[in-house]
Design a protein around this nucleic acid. Structure first.
Lengths: 180, 180, 180, 180
DNA sequence: GATGAATGAGTTTTCATTCAT
DNA sequence: CATGAATGAAAACTCATTCAT
């Protein structure tokens, strides 16, 4: 079951959900199609379960106090950790982003995601607010977009940043935005 | 033929390439399946043609002198124009991003894209260089990521920014990064 | 389409709905499975359509004035005609009876059937009432049961009555019941 | 084993033999699929065993002297008892009738049935003969059909006759047929 | 006795594609 | 140009049955 999920995630991420067949999954997992259906009611259910447990494991690794305010050093650490998590789950994130682009699926996914990501966004927001700038919302939008974009680039074209310095550049830019 | 492309792009963007059938396309276009095959050799060819002409029309609207250096005002205008183009072609961009996440397809797409986008990146690069900062590469990465992220958000969750101010916040952040 | 219906009815009647596969249907009809799905959305839809048009053709052949009262001769003719119709549609009736025994399907079927059969039952009722017996309801129940049973026997074991005299014996019994 | 039979009979009767899966049976019986196969070699064998023991218990309850001749009172009692038996085994009879309509299965079933039912038919025949009518075969056909039909109605639409008077009406009609 | 993981052949259904008209 | 009937390969899914434990 773990195996099926793992194999499916890789295939879904590489080829897309619709372009991946149960036969491929079964073959790559070294089992029969029938067995896959003993564990999951449908292909869709495999996807759902991947999303669920993917978000679970990712966010459980990040649990911090969402009400406290980070110091600069903690913020730096926080961002680096985010990138590390993305890198070590790039299959999942690639899948996540591709699903996000399909309106049919996206809505339920967005809800699920926002629910789990809320504490993180809160941490970011609090940090930005603590800087006392005139327009914290604008800073929040800009930094969120920058992170989102950097995550996407990390996932889609990791070879461009395999020196792993993208986060340092992002961090530097964050402070430029905030200390101004 | 124009119609088939248009209709296909919408369906591909909304449901994904693989989840869209030729029947759906023919039905939505109000023609027979057979006729679609008079114009296109295969479903894949429709996609290719969409990408080709999509990039064509988009970048032909943006042709500027890639070797010159923008003034600040021109840069602002340049960014705003980019967002406008994204918004008026959100179907295309949604499709573009979803394809980008499928490695099978992504490679040829990336080549194609970089080819067309090169002049724009050059403009951005020149502008950043003209600011004379210590680490222009870092600024380039940060700003590229921020733009990429903002485009993605514009395409996937337009409702969050329907006041259309996201570009202003991005522009402000760009200058903070560059004037520092 | 006519062909598919016809072939399906025979197979459904001989083997049962669930025990008949689309492959069998396609093979017997000399077409591909795919084509069958051009005409019918699902196997269930084939069944529905068979029932609909089966009841249609049968009852349209029997349309008589349901408010008038039959003479004895007309009653005899009416019964004989019923048996003839059953015999020339024995596939359909075998299918009909087998569906009647599956509660899942039976309810919608019963409604559909009663709707169409109502005029016939009315004719029978009127005829019985015209005889002025003390307990017409009892006569109606007995005669209905006798007809139902005779139809069932005709459909399931036609060889027992291939001389075609069962209806004469039923008719005789009817008059015994009514003239008493 | 008893349990498996009982549960299977209910499911077969409600949903049909082919539409019932071993999983459903095992689930409803609260056992594993494997265990079911310790008791029965196949799904078909469950069915066979149900039919066998179904006919057994039913006819063992009815054993009377097949050579004697019933009095009128005994005949009335005999019919009432038949209806009672049908009612208390409606699952079985529903299943029986549905199988009767599938030629593949029906032949072996008919043989089996006739074997067991022979004594009962003999009793009925003797009773009819004892009335000394001109055409006892015709009376036999009519009364058999009436009983068959009444049984079918009792099994398929019990709600129509839940006052339990259908047998009285049938009995009355029988005497009308016979005393004429 | 009892389980349930595992299979493989079968089922219903879908769909890109072809082609006679 | 245009249709839509037709196909065949492959998809998702089911299920009777087996077997190691």
């Amino acid at each position: 079951m773990e195996l099926i999920s793992k194999v499916s995630m890789e295939l879904f991420a590489e080829n897309g959900f619709h372009a991946t067949s149960m036969s491929q999954i079964a073959k790559k997992a070294g089992i029969s199609k029938g067995l896959a259906y003993n564990y999951f009611e449908s292909k869709k259910e495999i996807l759902d379960q991947i999303i669920q447990s993917g978000l679970d494991t990712i966010y459980s690794n990040l649990e911090t106090n969402p009400d406290g305010v980070l110091t600069d050093d903690e913020f730096v650490h926080f961002i680096r950790e985010n990138f590390m998590i993305i890198r070590s789950n790039h299959h999942f994130w690639r899948l996540y982003y591709s699903l996000l682009l399909q309106p049919q699926i996206a809505d339920s996914l967005k809800t699920l995601y926002l629910e789990r990501a809320q504490p993180l966004l809160k941490i970011l927001q609090n940090f930005i607010l603590s800087k006392g700038n005139k327009n914290p919302e604008a800073d929040f939008v800009a930094i969120s977009a920058m992170l989102e974009g950097a995550y996407l680039l990390t996932v889609t074209t990791p070879e461009l940043f395999d020196d792993g310095t993208i986060e340092e550049q992002i961090i530097t830019a964050c402070f430029k935005i905030l200390n101004n």
